[in-house]
């Protein structure tokens, strides 16, 4: 076992275990800080797929922006926390959630089964690019190539996503305004 796969398994275990803890913990503030750990571990997993720029963007956007926003929203509506603590059932496994548990496990079973049976016959283009050697290598300059791709081949989706982001932010500011001033 090389050190690369060891680190991969460590990051994967960290992500999965803290995600499991996240959905089981009662305290919403602690769950949000566990999301912090999950997002960092996911950024580490992106590094193993040789996507360094995506990993850094994940840390910047999610940990810097989204998580702070979630914590703000939690603090502005934290009367819910008291209700949630009072209605905690004394059972070890809370029974009303078993449908969700069954559905999630069934979905997991279907996905893992299909992935494992799929890995025997991969699609053509993966085998072709493996044969031609056009796989992204650790020595490649990914960020430069991504910048060129954004400004040439993917310039239309890039502009559309910029306009969409502006629309979404204006909409969010409009929705969350006070009612009396228009």
């Amino acid at each position: 076992m090389t050190i690369e796969s060891l680190l991969f398994y460590a990051f994967a275990c960290m992500a999965i275990v803290s995600a499991l803890l996240l959905v089981n913990i009662r305290n919403t503030a602690r769950a949000l800080f566990l999301l912090f750990i999950v997002l960092f571990a996911m950024a580490g997993l992106y590094l193993f797929a040789l996507a360094d720029f995506i990993a850094i963007t994940q840390i910047l956007v999610y940990v810097g922006g989204v998580l702070i926003l979630l914590i703000f929203a939690f603090m502005l509506s934290n009367k819910e926390l008291l209700n949630d603590l009072q209605s905690t059932s004394k059972h070890f496994i809370s029974l009303p959630n078993w449908q969700a548990l069954v559905l999630a496990f069934a979905f997991l079973g279907v996905m893992v089964y299909s992935y494992i049976s799929w890995s025997q016959h991969m699609p053509q283009w993966i085998a072709q690019s493996e044969a031609k050697g056009s796989i992204i290598l650790p020595t490649d300059n990914n960020i430069k190539a991504l910048g060129f791709k954004f400004m040439t081949q993917y310039v239309l989706p890039f502009e559309i996503i910029s306009v969409f982001l502006m629309m979404a932010l204006i909409g969010a500011a409009h929705v969350s305004r006070k009612e009396d001033d228009i």
Binding site: A12, A15, I16, A19, L20, L22, V23, V38, M42, L45, A100, L101, L103, A104, F105, F107, L108, M111, V112, Y115
Partner: peptide, 11 residues
């Protein structure tokens, strides 16, 4: 790994 994370999110 991504299937596991997806199903935790679904739950």
């Amino acid at each position: 790994v991504s299937a596991c994370i997806f199903c935790i999110g679904l739950y």
